[in-house]
């Protein structure tokens, strides 16, 4: 056998990892890609935009009052003559911050809790999951409201309170995934090498269940933002002069008859962002989780 009869390595079709497969499937989903780009645009605009605005969020101009969108004020002004553009963008920062941080909180609690239950199994698992069942049956909106009034109106607490009620589904998803992995040989091998349970769980098992976790995280962000907006709408979220999309919509709804742009513009930004998050989440699910992508 001569060396020339061997196909050179470079000419072989390169194998593709699962991750590359998923990425290719996601790339083909045009709607999800467009939404991803729009989302990136909204995030950039909210965090970068206010740096270029010449108006401050709290700067009032009572003589001017509410004016429709114009060359000076692209989004118009509210009753106190405050520039709506800069208020919508900074309000977006608040909403996106809540979305990111509360989701992070729910992610940490949910993954740690679900992985522990799924790995340990048996009695511990059934008690831990029964607790989740019980928590599911609580009127959680009631508790978010109680938590926010009990511990004052700090933003940090708002993040924690929302995250603390949103981790339940995440825990269930992670537990199901971990349970399937925990009985496999590579886990046994890791155990026979004398690794600690915590190391096995977080270093070897959790990376294998990341797919569904990523998907559910993308879908948690809009849910959390919706919850924050609802709280702000009830007057329990961010306090003036700060604004979030929820509180801007609340103010806008009060005067929609006379100044419709005060409702329309924040509502459009908010809905567009949620829309995009949901479609990116759906696209990720179809791309990562092959089984559920039939439909």
């Amino acid at each position: 056998m001569s060396a020339s009869s061997l196909t050179p390595l470079a000419a072989l079709p390169r194998g593709r990892s699962l991750r590359q497969d998923a990425w290719a499937r996601l790339r083909k989903n045009r709607l999800a890609m467009v939404c991803g780009v729009v989302l990136a645009g909204v995030v950039l605009l909210c965090y970068g935009g206010p740096l270029f605005c010449s108006y401050r969020i709290e700067a009032q101009n009572l003589d001017m009052g509410a004016t429709p969108p114009s060359a000076q004020h692209w989004f118009g002004t509210d009753e106190a003559g405050r520039d709506l553009l800069v208020r919508v963008l900074t309000g977006g920062q608040v909403s996106l911050n809540v979305g990111a941080l509360a989701t992070l909180v729910s992610l940490i609690i949910g993954v740690a809790y679900g992985a522990t239950a799924g790995y340990l199994g048996g009695r511990v698992d059934s008690v831990m999951m029964r607790v989740v069942d019980v928590l599911y049956s609580l009127p959680f909106m009631v508790f978010v409201i109680l938590l926010t009034v009990a511990f004052g109106r700090s933003m940090m607490l708002l993040y924690l309170a929302i995250g603390a009620v949103e981790w339940l589904t995440m825990a269930r998803i992670v537990r199901a995934g971990v349970q399937a992995q925990a009985r496999q040989e590579f886990v046994e091998a890791a155990r026979s090498l004398g690794l600690s349970d915590a190391r096995i769980i977080f270093r070897h098992i959790v990376p294998n269940v990341l797919g569904p976790v990523i998907v559910y995280t993308t879908l948690t962000v809009p849910a959390v933002m919706l919850l924050e907006a609802a709280l702000s709408f009830l007057g329990l979220g961010v306090q003036p002069p700060q604004s979030s999309w929820g509180s801007l919509i609340d103010q806008g709804a009060k005067s929609m008859e006379t100044y419709p742009w005060l409702l329309a513009i924040p509502a459009a930004f908010f809905s567009l962002t949620l829309f995009c998050f949901n479609f990116v989440g759906d696209g990720l699910r179809d791309a990562i989780d092959v089984k559920s992508s039939k439909d």
């Binding site: 919706l226 907006a229 609802a230 709408f233 929609m256 008859e257 409702l263 908010f270 949620l274 829309f275």
Partner: peptide, 22 residues
């Protein structure tokens, strides 16, 4: 359906009020 999921009640409500009420 996706639009319905993304429109929170406090946007949908005022819009319906505006159309059917005003």
């Amino acid at each position: 359906a996706m639009l319905g999921i993304c429109l929170p009640t406090f946007v949908m409500g005022p819009v319906l009020q505006w159309i059917f009420g005003l």
